[in-house]
């Protein structure tokens, strides 16, 4: 017994090192599996508060370009409205009108694109009824999926994350695949698992497929740069240039699918 205690005392530095290194490794491995990094994330009041107050200052430097982006979006939406064939005068506000998707606007207070697993921080949280697995988009295209939520902040798994998988498809046909990222360029992501038979040509538009309950169908993603077959020669691996400039993001929209619970229940009962 005494020898054991002596051993511990003699090697206490090494044991302490091993313990702390082990804890750090556990955190690292947790962060590499989807939705598991429970303890260490930036959606707490300390780091969220620090980033929020810094962003309050730094957002001033960006006002001009962000204003331009918002004005362009307004312009586009006005154009859509003016040219739509629906007569806006005849629509009556109906209290039973059912909305499948609810949008909430938010601001990105920390952007990140230089790691291989990037997370963003937004300034909406539980108090604004944001929950895990809500989609996030900007005016130009998809951004990611909400991961951890605290009272006033939430972290978002960016599409620039080697762990993220989002279902997407070609705009002109219905061939679908999943969006992944190889960690190289912040402007280019990969669409994998698209059937070999699908006609893919340069310049085609990629949109979300609406197959998962997170994003509605038709949110733009990017355009095809080039494609090749993967190692099994059965599927395309397509390089997609994003519409979004992921290095310059500020105003985003959080998408809530109000039918998620129903869809989940249905799928679970189908699996049984």
């Amino acid at each position: 017994m005494q020898q054991i205690i002596n051993f511990i005392i003699r090697n206490k530095n090494f044991l302490l090192f091993l313990l702390l290194f082990g804890i750090a490794l556990v955190f690292t491995i947790q962060s590499h599996s989807y939705h598991k990094s429970k303890f260490i994330n930036s959606a707490n009041f300390l780091s969220g508060g620090v980033y929020n107050s810094i962003n309050n200052i730094s957002s001033y430097f960006d006002l001009k370009s962000q204003n331009k982006i918002l004005a362009e979006e307004n312009n586009r939406l006005n154009q859509l409205l003016a040219n739509s064939r629906i007569d806006t005068n005849t629509i009556k506000t109906d209290s039973t009108l059912k909305l499948n998707y609810k949008y909430t606007s938010a601001r990105i207070i920390r952007n990140s694109y230089n790691l291989s697993n990037n997370f963003l921080l937004i300034n909406k949280g539980k108090n604004d009824s944001i929950k895990q697995d809500f989609g996030v988009r900007s005016s130009l295209g998809i951004i990611g999926i909400v991961d951890h939520v605290s009272r006033n902040y939430a972290t978002v798994i960016s599409i620039l994350n080697t762990k993220s998988r989002i279902s997407a498809q070609l705009k002109k046909t219905n061939h679908f695949g999943s969006l992944t990222w190889n960690g190289k360029s912040p402007n280019i992501i990969q669409l994998t698992d698209v059937e070999k038979i699908a006609p893919v040509t340069q310049g085609d538009t990629i949109i979300t497929s609406g197959r998962s309950s997170i994003f509605p169908k038709g949110i733009p993603v990017g355009t095809v740069i080039n494609s090749k077959l993967d190692a099994t020669e059965n599927f395309h691996v397509i390089n997609v240039k994003l519409f979004n400039d992921m290095t310059n993001l500020e105003h985003v929209y959080i998408i809530e699918n109000t039918d998620t619970a129903e869809i989940k229940n249905l799928l679970e009962s189908a699996n049984e």
Partner: peptide
């Protein structure tokens, strides 16, 4: 914690400290 990277900085820092 601030950069959402799990424990990579902690592991590396402990190593060089030891």
């Amino acid at each position: 914690m601030f950069s959402d990277t799990g424990g990579i900085h902690a592991a590396a820092s402990v190593c060089i400290a030891y």
